[in-house]
């Protein structure tokens, strides 16, 4: 038993160490690309946590492992335009489009809708497909086996599903559990799988992108306010025990509250995930920062950095699950506050 655990630990550490090495390799190549400017820490961080039109894995010697993703642009009057991002890479322009500071724009400065399949969007597609594959496969296993114990993947997922149902939804939502459970389960597993995939070396920083967390928070906000019952709105517009002259101020506070709750959801997930990435990148970046001063120092720091980032990645694995859980339980809490019957 102990040796089994130990070997699992070894595999995990090997995996993390390897991913760190890959990441550091990538950073090294990038830093050598911009040798004339020296090592630009901020640029490196931004490159890794920001969205991009191409999916850059690593650059090894002269081999550039990059997937150029399609760009989709819609302009009123001109309709859709779809082309590979390779055509606008390296400062080229195509049909009046060019990339400036990481954003697609028209050379004439006119407005358009940028619906490109960026790195983050592609990553979401992948995680969505994974999610569907996993859970539809799991659901199939239940067919005809209702009275048998779960096996394999099913046995791994079922406790998680039951955890969301029994420990998150049921105590908060009571008899309305089964109506909101599909949303809570979907959001939990969607965030979790995106968090986990984001930790892989070379993967996109999905949940550390404010647009994604913003969308998810907006979903929760819409569900909360659509399902809010009479009691919920009464609490907002006529809170009990408040003198009349205070009411307008309370209205402002309460209506702000409607928006700050999902805003906090959005910022929490975003900040947690992006800080995890940034800390790991910073620790690894230290190698090159010191390596620039002297090679020996760089190698010395590398030992510390790999150990430290391994630790941080392990912590991020925990944070990935924890943040998904917190997003889910807070969503359930807000929904619960909106649908509960008057109790006081």
């Amino acid at each position: 038993m102990i040796s089994k655990r130990f070997s699992i630990l070894c595999v995990l550490f090997f995996f993390f160490g390897f991913s760190n090495l890959l990441a550091s390799e990538a950073i090294q190549k990038e830093s050598t690309n911009q040798e004339e400017k020296g090592f630009d820490f901020g640029e490196l961080l931004m490159h890794h946590v920001k969205d991009a039109y191409e999916w850059h894995f690593f650059t090894l010697a002269n081999f550039d492992a990059t997937i150029y993703l399609p760009i989709i642009a819609y302009k009123n009057g001109e309709g859709f335009e779809v082309f590979s991002s390779r055509k606008v890479s390296d400062g080229n322009s195509y049909h009046g489009y060019e990339i400036e500071e990481g954003h697609l724009r028209r050379q004439d400065g006119s407005k358009f809708f940028d619906l490109s399949i960026t790195k983050v969007v592609a990553s979401i597609f992948i995680s969505a497909i994974l999610l569907l594959l996993i859970f539809i496969r799991v659901a199939r296993k239940y067919k005809g086996n209702e009275k048998k114990a779960p096996h394999g993947l099913q046995a791994f997922m079922e406790p998680l599903v039951l955890f969301i149902r029994d420990d998150v939804a049921k105590p908060i939502l009571g008899d309305k559990t089964y109506f909101y459970l599909p949303y809570l389960l979907s959001i939990f597993f969607f965030i979790w799988i995106n968090n986990m995939l984001g930790l892989l070396p070379g993967a996109a920083n999905v949940t550390g992108n404010i647009a994604i967390t913003c969308t998810l928070a907006i979903f929760t906000m819409i569900i909360v306010n659509v399902s809010g019952n009479k009691h919920y709105w009464l609490e907002i517009f006529l809170p009990p025990g408040i003198p009349l002259w205070l009411l307008p101020i309370m209205w402002i506070v309460e209506i702000m509250g409607i928006f700050t709750k999902p805003f906090a959801l959005m910022v929490r997930l975003f900040a947690n995930m992006i800080s995890g990435h940034m800390i790991i990148l910073s620790i690894i970046g230290l190698i090159f920062l010191f390596g620039e001063m002297s090679q020996g120092l760089g190698w010395g720091i590398a030992l510390f950095s790999v150990a430290m980032s391994t630790f941080m990645l392990s912590l991020d694995l925990l944070v990935a699950a924890l943040q998904a859980y917190i997003f889910t339980i807070l969503s359930a809490l807000f929904i619960g506050l909106a649908v509960q019957d008057a109790q006081h």
């Binding site: 420990d167 906090a264 910022v267 929490r268 947690n272 924890l322 859980y325 917190i326 339980i329 809490l333």
Partner: peptide, 15 residues
């Protein structure tokens, strides 16, 4: 569960 919720709320303010 309550600890995590409360900690998350405080963390939100810190964030």
């Amino acid at each position: 569960a309550n600890m995590i919720i409360t900690a998350a709320l405080i963390e939100g303010v810190a964030l």
